[in-house]
């Protein structure tokens, strides 16, 4: 029975479940909003990183878990968002929220533009194509001097204070989670899962698989671009190797696989786990990613549904989850 619960998150009424989820999200936002009032910088830093990761993981989980698209190109959109955000802040003096919205648009447009190449063949090509896209953009940024070349660009004014940034990223994480809730708790979810399960049979039901996958890709890319934008605002200085680096893609993929692909709580658990692992191994940076690699191998082999999948299989927690 636990399998049925895992694979079909809607036990009971869809709308009730959705409302509960929205209520939990609003409650979490309300409580966490006041964290800067009593927490120190260390915890705000961690909170900021967790929220950025959560935004990325929510989008990636939507693509992989719901539409079957495994991306290694998250960094393309993070980098794009980062450059767009600092460009807007420096040149136009746009306020940060507006800049982030424009980042989201840019991310979505880029995703739509490259989709003909990436969706041409099914499956593996999407993965290698996204990998190449990130490398292409990084090389472009390194070489074009208008974008600051290899040294990147610097935010001219001072970055906002950490508590302010924390609240921005908190709202962003809230909005990302809310969007995904809308996608997974409404009728959109059956369409997405149908395409993931059997694209041909879905088409025979009148679904246009290309559009559905494109939608998931555009949405995830817009989220990643916003995450990149706010990350850049916090850093105050960006360069192509960091913002377009493969590490972003590794982190987001690890989070979702560790948390549980396609599961609602997977991104959150995964983000917390990866941040906690990073802290625990802060003094051994090389060992950190290697250990993440070992964890990935073990989970793929023995627990393809990740930590959340394992937890749900335990009868007690499984019932609570339901």
């Amino acid at each position: 029975m636990s399998d049925a619960i895992v694979s079909s998150p809607r036990v009971g009424s869809a709308s009730t479940g959705g409302l509960v989820e929205v209520a939990v999200l609003v409650g979490a936002l309300g409580v966490l909003w006041f964290v800067p009032d009593f927490a120190g910088d260390y915890w705000l830093q961690l909170g900021f990183r967790t929220c950025v990761y959560l935004v990325l993981a929510q989008g990636w989980n939507l693509m992989a878990g719901s539409a079957g698209l495994v991306s290694l190109g998250t960094s393309s959109f993070i980098g794009l968002g980062a450059y767009a955000a600092l460009g807007l802040l420096n040149r136009v003096g746009a306020p940060l929220p507006l800049a982030l919205l424009i980042c989201a648009t840019a991310g979505g447009v880029l995703a739509a533009l490259v989709s003909p190449a990436l969706f041409r063949l099914r499956g593996l090509y999407f993965t290698v194509g996204t990998l190449a896209l990130a490398e292409l953009l990084r090389l472009l940024m390194v070489n074009v001097s208008a974008f600051g070349g290899a040294t990147g660009i610097i935010l001219q004014e001072d970055p906002p204070a950490l508590p302010v940034l924390f609240r921005y990223v908190l709202v962003l994480a809230f909005l990302a989670s809310l969007t995904i809730t809308l996608c997974t708790r409404t009728r959109v979810s059956v369409i997405l899962r149908a395409v993931r399960d059997d694209e041909d049979a879905a088409a025979q039901m009148g679904i246009r698989p290309y559009r559905v996958k494109l939608g998931a890709f555009v949405l995830a890319s817009a989220l990643a671009a916003m995450a990149g934008g706010i990350q850049a605002a916090k850093l105050g200085a960006i360069e192509p190797y960091g913002m377009f680096g493969l590490q972003w893609s590794i982190d987001v993929l690890s989070m979702v696989i560790i948390g549980g692909v396609g599961l609602r709580l997977g991104p959150l658990v995964g983000a917390l786990f990866v941040v906690a692992l990073g802290e625990a191994l802060a003094d051994y940076p090389e060992a950190h990613t290697a250990i993440a690699g070992v964890i990935l191998i073990v989970l793929i082999r023995f627990a393809p549904q990740g930590i959340v999948g394992l937890a749900v299989k335990l009868p007690l927690i499984g019932r609570v989850q339901a």
């Binding site: 590794i250 993929l253 990613t289 290697a290 993440a292 690699g293 990935l296």
Partner: peptide
């Protein structure tokens, strides 16, 4: 994905 982890 396993080979990706091996790569890391």
């Amino acid at each position: 994905m396993t080979m990706f982890a091996v790569s890391i």
